[in-house]
Write a protein that binds this DNA or RNA. Structure first.
Lengths: 249, 249
DNA sequence: TTATTTACTGCAAATAATTGCAATGTTTTA
DNA sequence: TAAAACATTGCAATTATTTGCAGTAAATAA
């Protein structure tokens, strides 16, 4: 592990847990406490954290910035996104749902791809707005604040009027029996409309979502053309999905 | 393997794994570490990666992060925003245009304000999405990428159907004769629609926009109820506007 | 206060990076 | 075509960085 990686690891842990402990870090990283302390000192000098006796905490006066989106499991999500790139082609009409997996994917899109992309996620739209050859259409409506996506009638109405080649859909949970399920009712409705509007449906999610369930059904797995996870496609966990006729990447 | 190929290989691996290790690369490519280091140096000089002890990591893309919005004259814009706060009341229906002045204003809104806000700007929507008591409606449409706002028919259609109490409108340029003018045609059209949809129009801009002109007319100054700048309201520069019946804050 | 835990400092060993140099291969020029 | 100029690569010597350890200092807890 490179030093830079290690410092990243520390910062990520700090953001996630709002504190880090010197001894614990030394154990986890398999290094001496001295080294960890030196890292913490460097990060402190850079103003990235506040050192305290026993470890470190986030810098106190750092005002909460809505534009800093914390992505968990970013590495896994990047692997997923890289696999998904093979599904992109010039000229496609694409619908992208929200979620951090799709956000990571958005960052990996080839800079010169020519495509039309519909989305209803603010962060994804911001990310995609940097691509010069992409026609980007934001699906307006009432904002669901925590997820930063639009929901409701307006969204459904727009989706009912478009026809896309492919749809990249995040997932709260998936299992063989119920298929794709969502935490929120409104989001499940919107996702249903996305399905209807797309020829092909690709669902991307980290393996921890496999074989879990949330309240609102979106669709059975027979409705999915492709699923992409961070696992090897012939992992035991994915066997059932493959048998059910889903392409597993 | 050509040198160019090799460097491509390194860059690809770097993007995929977010790190490369000198020794590992030397093994994989069957070359000495020295050669790899020379490659990494070249790529570093070209700005394609960040060299660190033991290998390299991607260039810290903090600078080109779309989520980091650079705000010029932030201090002045904050002054303007603070003045504008007096115009906010619970229960209002508000339309907010884009621009960094409005973005700064958005950050200053009292956390508990109860209001309905329509906007067509991605950054402003992201900012406003943190307020729990604000009903936020994003006006969808085709994205204009540099400004990160939606434009076009869809936007006009939504605006034609709403009625707001107040509209906070940024400005490219303003002068006594032509009034408010814009750089882009599409944006000027959208702003006209905003005017029509609002009882009251407030325009906020830094003083450097005063007495300047851009190609596309939005409206005469008689159409503005209030203008807010970073100047003192009875500054000489604002006299004419005051005489024309505009409230100057 | 004392005991205990945590942090800092200098030092040495290990690891990595840089530099000059020579051998080899490639391109340009006469 | 041959010679010269240039580029690439690996090696060795030198230099720089990182790391853990030991001793000591500082902070916290009892």
């Amino acid at each position: 592990m490179l030093k830079a990686e290690r410092r990243n690891f520390i910062m990520t842990k700090l953001v996630k847990e709002q504190r880090v402990n010197t001894i614990e870090l030394a154990e986890v990283l398999g290094l001496s406490e001295d080294t960890i302390r030196r890292d913490l000192n460097k990060l402190h000098v850079k103003g990235l954290l506040e050192k305290v006796y026993g470890g470190a905490i986030p810098v106190s006066n750092k005002e909460e910035n809505v534009f800093d989106i914390v992505i968990s499991n970013e590495k896994k999500k990047r692997e997923i996104g890289l696999k998904a790139l093979s599904l992109l082609h010039d000229g496609q009409v694409i619908i992208m749902s929200g979620g951090t997996t799709n956000l990571v994917f958005s960052k990996l899109i080839p800079p010169l791809l020519k495509a039309t992309i519909y989305t209803y996620s603010l962060p994804i739209a911001m990310q995609l707005s940097q691509y010069q050859n992409i026609d980007l259409i934001f699906i307006g409506g009432k904002m669901q604040k925590n997820a930063m996506v639009t929901i409701g009638m307006d969204v459904l109405q727009v989706l009912s009027k478009i026809k896309a080649d492919i749809c990249f859909m995040g997932a709260s949970s998936i299992n063989i029996k119920q298929g794709l399920t969502e935490v929120g009712y409104e989001v499940s409705i919107v996702k249903k409309a996305m399905l209807e509007a797309s020829d092909k449906v690709v669902s991307m999610f980290t393996a921890d979502k496999l074989n879990s369930k949330t309240p609102h059904v979106v669709c059975g797995i027979d409705r999915l053309n492709t699923i992409i996870t961070d696992l090897n496609p012939d992992d035991e966990l994915l066997k059932e999905y493959h048998s059910a006729g889903v392409i597993v990447l």
